[in-house]
Amino acid sequence: MAKAYDYLFKLLLIGDSGVGKTCVLFRFAEDQYNATFISTIGIDFKIRTIELDGKKIKLQIWDTAGQERFRTITTAYYRGAMGILLVYDITSEKSFDSIRNWIRNIEEHASADVERMLIGNKCDMNDRRQVSKERGEKLAIEYGMKCMETSAKLNENIENAFFTLARDIKAKTEKRLNQNRPGSNSQNGTGSNTKLKPKDNGGSKSSFFKMCTIL
């Protein structure tokens, strides 16, 4: 069946163990209806469909399998990634200090033009804050990233973070497409990233893509 979307973006979450990556990506399950089959085996990735400026975008969002604990995130995990959320915990100085190391890791293993964004998670725990918002912003500016504070617990800014990252990747992709218009763009191995598609089943779009479907 025809591909009914405009773009496909692979997104990753990176950061120290315990900063809340899994909660950001998945459901913040405090009141675990736990010991279900699913929570026992764990979740690998999700596919989300969002709409931005009339374009239908598929997001494939991956969680780490906990490799970050051993700092063994390698090329395989980064392969094809177009966007990375770099997550620290605002109540953990150490997790914030680690961001520079993670950036180095990304530079080493990920594609050079991967879009990055800095996330200060757990902003619901202001009373235990160790990292000021200003320091987050300063670091983000230093590396040319956007930044945002989130709370997976209160579901605050999570959706916004994914949309912002997706929007920036889209802008970058479209800019590149325009630049390369006359020739074929072969610089980016996986052509599937920027595939232009026939959108066949038009019709009543608006209600399908309510902006709140991402977490």
């Binding site: 069946m1 979740i43 596919i47 469909t49």
Partner: peptide, 21 residues
């Protein structure tokens, strides 16, 4: 094609299978 789905999750692999959630 997995990207035919609007919204779907995949579990980790068990017994050579991934479950849809």
């Amino acid at each position: 094609d997995a990207f035919t789905f609007e919204n779907i999750g995949f579990t980790n692999t068990v017994d050579n299978k991934k479950y849809l959630i």
